[in-house]
Amino acid sequence: MDPQAAKFIGAGLACFALIGAGVGIGNIFGNYLSGALRNPSAAPGQFTNLLIGFALCEATGLFGLLIALMILFA
């Protein structure tokens, strides 16, 4: 296989990590929203936790994106 082509394929595969991040972020915000609708008074207190969860979740996806970029450009 052409090494260049293998590189592109590898980068594309590494981007699969973003699927998990997308599912995770959707989960976090969806659950936050349903919880907030059930008990709106408690929602603002959990906003910081929401953002922390969002960031932790997003980071895992971005690690994959990082690998893709490194494969492409490094």
């Binding site: 960031a55 997003e58 980071a59 971005l62 690690f63 994106l65 990082l66 970029l69």
Partner: peptide, 16 residues
């Protein structure tokens, strides 16, 4: 590592 890569990857991915 996770602390730094999170910030770095977010900023870089956004700009890219």
């Amino acid at each position: 590592i996770s602390h730094s890569v999170r910030l770095f990857a977010n900023m870089m991915a956004g700009h890219a």
